[in-house]
Each structure stands twice: as structure tokens, then as C-alpha cells.
Design a protein around this nucleic acid. Structure first.
Lengths: 135, 135
DNA sequence: GTAATAGTGAGACTGAGTATCATGTGGAGA
DNA sequence: TCTCCACATGATACTCAGTCTCACTATTAC
């Protein structure tokens, strides 16, 4: 660190490719298993480091599943948004800020707190999973 | 389990007391350290089990800190609410649902997803910490 | 009191994530 | 194209949260 640029190394390219092949959310361990299944040799620490880096670059975002597990989802950088995670298939969609900002302003006025960051995660069922096992 | 009641045991009473002495959020490990500092003997597994139980009874709620750590906060059961956590002192306040329900309805209509649960956590500075180191 | 059984705690285990450090390599500059 | 070195890698050891097991204990119903 310290310098501006990050090196484009082979292991990072591999992690990026593993991420790109994923559809829903995934953990570091999922990627490790993917790599193993495809006979790709890559160090555990390297995968963790690459995921950290990608999260820092806003290419990935870290989310907390209801189970308490830490997972990553790919996302578009440069705008504030949240995720809906499908409990059934794990697919993830981005949704826009949905007026939370206004609500937070209200809270600040009412309570005297200063809200600096927030984390919102939504969980439910995607359209596909709804129609495939409609009850 | 299976039956209705839970036993009121000494270790559970101890954990409840340790929780009551806490002001902000805390981890299982914080309680273990508290116990140690006060020369109270209690098993690690027991603390985890008691916290699980209290969370199940809605006396505590599990939250995820921005660091990724899992913590607990005491809260009033029987109504839906969220928490603001002070980054400086760790104090926690409950806030009401703040119209998130309406926003979620909108998302469902727009995206076709069915939102079942959500988790929202707010982080910032409490009034006390704002005034004590105002910049 | 007694019995049934939920709860406890010591300790082993698991799995995520981090730290260390010798070795490897990307890429800037010559 | 070559050299150099800071950054990156990966093997390994480590830490730490949380779970599991199992023999033992204590609560509660009767």
C-alpha cells in the first residue's frame, strides 16, 4: 500500500474469474471450493486478501446473512444501494436507496443522534423462486 | 426443550446480571471477561447458550457491527424496531420502524421480489459523545 | 424424598480469518 | 530486454468465536 496502484496478478485474476462465475452471494470458502473443484491452486490467504481488496474497490460488498455468516456480493460501485438476498436460491439484486435518507434525517432530529453509516439488508424470495414453488 | 418452560438456573441468573450491568452492546466474550474480572466461575458454553436463549426470548437482539463482529444488545420485546449504535462509546438506542415498511412495499411492487425479513442497523454518535468532543 | 430430564462445564473440535516470513513476480525505469 | 525491488503470494502456524460431546449436577414435578 501507500502507492496508488494495485498490481494485476495472476491469483487476483483467478479470484476475479471465480467471482464472475458466481450468481448469488458467496463466502471466501465457496470460492476456495470452486477453485479446488476446478483444480486451481490458490492460497487461502490470497483469496481472503483478494476479496478484501475487491471490497475496498467497491466491486464486491460484504453482507451479513441472517445466519450470521459473512458473504460477498458483486455490485456496481459509485452509488449507494442495498441488496435483497433470495433465501431460496441465494440470488442477489440491488435496490436503490428507497428514501431511507429522509427517515434518517427525522431520526437525527428526534433523537439528537448523528447517524454516520447504516447497513440494510433485505431477505426474501426472488420472482423465479416464487413461481417455481408457489403455495 | 419440547416442554413449555425453561429452568431458572443459577448460571442463567448470573448471565442476566452480567447483561444488566452492561450499558452498550457486548459480545459473549465481553461477558466472559466481566465474569472473570468479578471472579465468577461460569462455563464458556453456558454463556453462549444463555445468550442464545435470551435472544430467542427477545430480551436480547443480535446485531452485526461494522467490523463484522457479532454483538448483543438488550431490547424491549414485542415490537419491531432498529438500533443506533454509537461508534464512540458503544451505547445503543432503539428507534421505531421509521416507514421502512412503506418503502419495502414499493420495492416489492417494482421488483417482483417478496421481502420476508430485513435487518437495519444504524451507526453514528450519541448526543453525549457529540458534545464531549465536538469538532 | 425421588425420579426424570434440562442444564452445566471441561475440553476437544471446527472453521473463519489473521500473522509471519521466505520466496516469487509485475512492471517501472534504465 | 534487463534489472530491481516493493508488493504479492502461499505455506503454515496461530487466534478466536462458536459448537459438540458427554459425564455430571441441579431444578422441578410428583
Amino acid at each position: 500500500m501507500g502507492r496508488a496502484g494495485y498490481r494485476l496478478t495472476e491469483p487476483r485474476r483467478v479470484v476475479a474469474e471465480l467471482v464472475a462465475r458466481r450468481t448469488g452471494h458467496f463466502t471466501a470458502n465457496d470460492l476456495l471450493e470452486d477453485a479446488q473443484a476446478r483444480d486451481i491452486e490458490i492460497g487461502r490467504a490470497t483469496v481472503f486478501r483478494a476479496l478484501d481488496l475487491f471490497a475496498e474497490l467497491d466491486v464486491l460488498e460484504r453482507i451479513d446473512l441472517p445466519t450470521g455468516d459473512h458473504a460477498y456480493v458483486p455490485c456496481l460501485p459509485e452509488h449507494h444501494h442495498h441488496h435483497i438476498v433470495c433465501d431460496t436460491c441465494g440470488r442477489v439484486t440491488e435496490v436503490e436507496d428507497l428514501g431511507l435518507g429522509v427517515a434518517i434525517d427525522q431520526i437525527e432530529r428526534r433523537t439528537g443522534w448523528e447517524v454516520q453509516t447504516h447497513r440494510l439488508e433485505l431477505f426474501g424470495r426472488c420472482p423465479t423462486c416464487q413461481s417455481s414453488r408457489d403455495d
